[in-house]
């Protein structure tokens, strides 16, 4: 899978929803469980800038293509947050900048110290940390893309489905970047492979685990990926991961659902 960074930066746009008839939600609102999931997704998207921060203190910053990607990626993810915030707003749920700030402040020292931990770890590991960053990003983007597609299918709402599929399509381009970079950096590099495998198998958690309560994570994962169809998507993500150099046999996403008691 090749990735053309020039084409990606050239074509990067904010996700659009103005042409969609989302006002129908005023009379025909989404169920509470889906709004809860959308709120979680919205928070995660807005929090991207903090994930970006944690990466900017590592050797990943300074890599030309990575810098260009991160600039566009951060903006696209921000707009995913704006789009979902619009849907929530139509349901009377306001996501303001003040509220986002309050949430970030509430995360406390765990959040503030995150870049310190990341910087120290990456200083010890050196350049191979970039490979870990890339495979980590790939897993998260595969998960995000699958999550949007699942919610679109589960809700079956025509306008919402189009919006979620547009977001998923952008996430898929992010996958292409991360997976291409991960493959290039892991290929033939046993040390990077071992590090990536160790990091994923011991530290990876579903996207949003760092900012949401366990209860919320379990709700979202259960709604989107519980049951046979959901688990099929999860297995597909694990299969993608396992195809990357040195990752054979890893089933971290399935394992994380099992650990939360989410049935297949």
């Amino acid at each position: 899978m090749a990735f053309n960074i020039d084409r990606f930066t050239r074509d990067s746009v904010r996700v659009n929803w103005e042409d969609l008839d989302l006002d129908v939600f005023r009379e025909d609102p989404l169920p509470a469980e889906s709004l809860r999931t959308l709120r979680y997704m919205c928070d995660v998207e807005y929090h991207t800038v903090c994930y970006l921060r944690d990466m900017l203190v590592t050797p990943s910053r300074g890599e030309g293509e990575v810098n260009a990607f991160m600039t566009m990626w951060n903006r696209e993810e921000f707009w995913h947050g704006e789009a979902l915030a619009h849907v929530l707003d139509l349901h009377g749920i306001t996501v303001s900048y003040d509220e986002l700030k309050a949430k970030r402040v509430k995360l406390g020292w765990r959040d503030r110290i995150a870049p310190v931990k990341q910087a120290m770890l990456s200083n010890i590991i050196g350049k191979d940390f970039v490979a870990v960053h890339m495979i980590w990003g790939a897993v998260n983007e595969w998960s995000a893309s699958a999550a949007y597609k699942r919610l679109a299918a589960l809700e079956g709402h025509p306008a919402l489905a189009v919006l979620l599929k547009r977001i998923a399509a952008q996430e898929a381009r992010h996958v292409a970047f991360y997976a291409t970079q991960a493959r290039q950096r892991l290929e033939g590099n046993r040390k990077a492979q071992k590090l990536a495998r160790l990091a994923l198998s011991t530290a990876w958690r579903p996207v949003g685990s760092g900012i949401a309560s366990d209860e919320e994570v379990t709700h979202v994962m259960g709604q989107l990926f519980g049951g046979a169809d959901g688990r099929k998507e999860i297995r597909a993500i694990d299969a993608h991961i396992a195809k990357l150099p040195g990752m054979e046999g890893l089933t971290i996403v399935s394992d994380s659902l099992d650990a939360r008691g989410i049935s297949a």
């Binding site: 903090c50 900017l56 986002l100 700030k101 970030r104």
Partner: peptide, 24 residues
């Protein structure tokens, strides 16, 4: 660009959603 973002985002500025929206 990203050096400046790094320098701002490791500080309490990262919690300021108005500022981070602008920075993106």
């Amino acid at each position: 660009i990203l050096d400046l973002m790094r320098d701002l985002l490791v500080t309490p500025t990262h919690a300021e959603a108005r500022v981070t929206a602008f920075l993106g």
